[in-house]
Design a protein around this nucleic acid. Structure first.
Lengths: 225, 225
DNA sequence: ACGCCTATACTCGTGTACGAGTAATCGCTG
DNA sequence: CAGCGATTACTCGTACACGAGTATAGGCGT
């Protein structure tokens, strides 16, 4: 059920959730979102933001209420959410929460070309990632705990989720590093040999050539595009 | 150290990793990537793919070797990787592996507006997600195990990582659902009351208004844009 | 009271992403 | 062996993303 949204950018979801509270003008929306940390949950770019507002207006999810001119500043249009907007908010939230979609974290892409690096280099870099990750987790943990003292947990679920995921990544990394440093990781010698002698073992050249084995979980033969 | 890549789309990384093996023409690259499952690691769209190839050529990461005309078909240009391309592959892989970057999974965005849904609805939807997730994990686990019998683990790290992350999400979901269904989740009554009576408790209206508390982990006051 | 710096509040141009469309060939069926 | 659907192999137009630029207002030091 992944529907095609008229405005697909997730910023629109945040805008809707802000305008549910009360009508605001764009910049006010933006500061509100930043003030309660929504900009951590999704990419926030000013250029994109105003485009999204314009598109939402075009598609009648929001509508202009008034246009206040404050002094000689450029007039700012105050928007309110429409019934259509309210419906979109709920429908979109339901979809996002209920339906897991294939995500593509950058780290995964990095791992997929890990063999291109020398195993020792790879190990160092993974350890570096783990260190950075541990630091970030510690920090975010502290920030979250501080907020939990004044904001109900319901409004911090995303942060709890984020923290749990990062912790899981750290744990996974730790396990992988253990295998790499102890030397127990299977195929490590072959990997090292390839990078030090430049010699590709027979079993690998053979593997690289066979274009036959489609490695799909589900048989999605048809990707329309 | 997140450098600005001349071609930022991750498809370019995959293309480089394919051309390291041997020169190929675009369509051949695409089928190779799909055959060894790289299309699961990153978004693959045909339209994007050809744009990326053209940009990589423009930036001299790859170069045309020959242009074979096979029968009366449109001629296909065979590309090979350049030294610059090889350098880019290694440098990019190192960055992706070593440096955690803020990601924005769609589920997180969904969670950030969870309060917009009725708690009972939210609970049902979360359970639905968990079910779908469990199914997907079972399937991918089976597929991965099958592949591990013929492909070295090194070339399946990304899948192992992905599986670990999904498992972690499932575990987190299970814990959250336990609290929601047992009724032990703090603030659940308030949440329910708000949706059933439409009445927003005083402590929440107050919270919504204060635009003062910037919830940032790091003080990034300046987002240039 | 005037220059200057910072914060506010956007607009615009360029480049990128991608769905829809296209055209040739292959292979099967009747 | 003619017809036809599937597969191969792309191109193109448009919508979207976003960095850089702009313009006004408010504060403040001298």
């Amino acid at each position: 059920m992944p529907k095609r949204r008229k405005v697909s950018n997730l910023l629109a979801l945040a805008v809707l959730s802000a305008l549910v509270q009360r009508p605001m003008h764009p910049y006010e929306i933006a500061t509100a979102l930043r003030s309660w940390g929504k900009d951590q949950d999704m990419e926030f770019k000013w250029g994109t933001f105003y485009t999204v507002i314009r598109n939402m207006d075009k598609h009648h999810m929001i509508e202009a209420v008034e246009s206040v001119r404050d002094g000689r500043r450029p007039e700012r249009t105050v928007y309110r959410i429409t019934d259509l907007g309210r419906a979109e908010l709920v429908d979109w939230a339901r979809e996002l929460v209920s339906t897991p979609m294939p995500e593509h974290p950058r780290f995964r892409a990095g791992l997929s070309v890990l063999a291109a690096l020398h195993p020792d280099d790879a190990t160092d870099l993974l350890r570096q990632r783990l260190d950075l990750l541990d630091d970030a987790i510690r920090q975010d943990r502290a920030v979250l705990d501080a907020h939990l003292r004044e904001i109900p947990r319901l409004f911090l679920v995303e942060s709890e989720y984020d923290l749990a995921m990062r912790a899981a990544e750290a744990a996974w990394l730790r396990a992988l590093l253990a295998e790499l440093t102890s030397g127990s990781y299977p195929g490590l010698d072959t990997w090292r040999a390839f990078h030090e002698t430049g010699e590709m073992p027979a079993e690998l050249t053979e593997l690289a050539e066979r274009t036959s084995t489609p490695r799909a979980g589900d048989p999605d033969l048809d990707t329309p595009d």
